[in-house]
Amino acid sequence: MRWKTHGERQIYTNEWVNLCLADVQQPDGQRLAYHVVRLRHLAVATVVNRRQEVLMMWRHRFITDSWAWELPMGLVEEGETPEETAAREVLEETGWRPGPIKPLIYAEPANGITDSQHHVFRADGATYAGPPTEKNESDRIEWIPLAKVRAMIDRREIVSSGSLVGLLYLLMDEAFR
């Protein structure tokens, strides 16, 4: 059952978000205006060291007024590949230069309302390059044992979709190695 789009117009736009109103027709023939949030794409990095620890950041999100652990992530810039973004974000946000980046999983976390694409990568190993250059990203940066991640998710210490998708896939991947 496919919805048909008759057109779309922007209601609001800035460098971060575009809010659009789409004229759609549902499979039953009903036609309606549907709000769509168009976002720039995101790259997420799961960096794992030899001790089976993952590089994470403890950060506050003002929108939900909550603290949680997150993987390094950021918006894909114009002219940049998602792989390049993932490597850049790890270095800027944590001060660690990741080893070779390889695709881990692709996700569209809220595709009923937004076109946001999450490109999640894995890097095995990293080299410390110095303090993070991004000063507004996190309170602390730690290597978290993979063995503790499931319990942290259960306790809602990890809640962002980009982090959850990457970590859950990483845990599944590690379980089958």
Rank of each mutant, 00 (worst) to 15 (best):
F62C: 00
I113N: 11
K102S: 09
V120A: 15
M152K: 11
V159S: 05
F62G: 04
T64K: 04
A147G: 08
H6M: 05
G95W: 04
R156D: 13
N49T: 02
F62Y: 08
G125F: 05
L91G: 02
G99H: 06
A33W: 15
W96K: 03
E70C: 11
E80M: 11
E83C: 02
R2G: 12
T114H: 10
S163W: 10
M152N: 05
V37H: 11
Q25R: 08
D115N: 15
L164S: 07
H118N: 12
I141S: 14
E78T: 06
R38N: 12
D139M: 05
H41G: 01
S160D: 15
Q10M: 05
I144A: 06
R38Y: 06
S161G: 00
G166K: 03
T94G: 11
D124Y: 07
L71T: 12
L71K: 02
S160Y: 07
V36Q: 15
E108F: 06
N14H: 02
K148W: 08
H41N: 15
A22W: 08
T5Y: 08
H6G: 10
T46S: 15
P72V: 07
M152V: 00
A22P: 04
S163D: 12
W143H: 06
Y34V: 00
S66N: 08
R40P: 06
W67G: 01
G74A: 10
E77H: 07
W58P: 00
I101G: 05
A33N: 12
L168D: 13
H41F: 04
M56E: 12
A68R: 03
I113Y: 14
A147R: 11
T46Y: 03
I158H: 10
D23Y: 03
Y128Q: 14
P27A: 07
A126E: 09
W58D: 12
Q30C: 01
A107D: 15
E15I: 00
S116F: 00
D23F: 01
T133E: 14
P131A: 11
R40D: 14
E89R: 08
D139C: 00
I141K: 13
L39R: 15
T46G: 09
L19S: 06
Q117D: 11
I113G: 07
L104T: 04
V54R: 03
E77G: 03
T5Q: 14
V159L: 08
V44I: 13
I105K: 13
